[in-house]
């Protein structure tokens, strides 16, 4: 893990290219000291990284995100208001790597969704 205490996986189900995860954000992670002082907001890039790490778990190998085709961040995520999140991933094998579609949210609401291309990390 890049920031080892940013989140924990509470449960997961991986079947074929479909992965469903329950995530707990750690409000004590030191990234919140600076993002932002006295007003913790989960950095969008940390959530993107988290989804990439979940994709690595599914792929069983380290991946390099060479193309983040699109990522929409529609709701501000904070560790206080959103201590638990669900992540739904669809990882498809393509020539030379993987195509990832992922959504992060709660219940039926989607807070962040992304499409990316990944290749095995050297």
């Amino acid at each position: 893990m890049l920031i080892h205490d940013y989140y924990t996986i509470e449960s997961n189900s991986i079947e074929g290219g479909i992965g469903d995860f329950c995530i707990r954000l750690n409000a004590g992670c030191r990234v919140y000291q600076g993002h932002f002082p006295g007003k913790p907001v989960s950095p969008g890039v940390c959530n993107i990284q988290m989804l990439k790490e979940l994709a690595e778990l599914m792929a069983g190998q380290r991946l390099f995100m060479n193309n983040l085709q699109q990522c929409r961040l529609t709701t501000l995520i904070t560790p206080d208001e959103h201590p638990t999140l669900k992540a739904n991933l669809l990882l498809e094998k393509i020539d030379g790597g993987y195509k990832l579609r992922a959504a992060l949210g709660q219940d039926e609401a989607v807070f962040l969704e992304m499409k990316a291309e990944l290749t095995p990390a050297k």
Binding site: G44, V45, F64, N66, N67, L68, Q69, Q70, R72
Partner: peptide, 16 residues
């Protein structure tokens, strides 16, 4: 003022 990323598009990385 606080600025937030709304959308990232076509983020292509040649190398880190």
């Amino acid at each position: 003022k606080l600025g937030f990323i709304g959308e990232v598009k076509k983020f292509k990385i040649v190398r880190l």
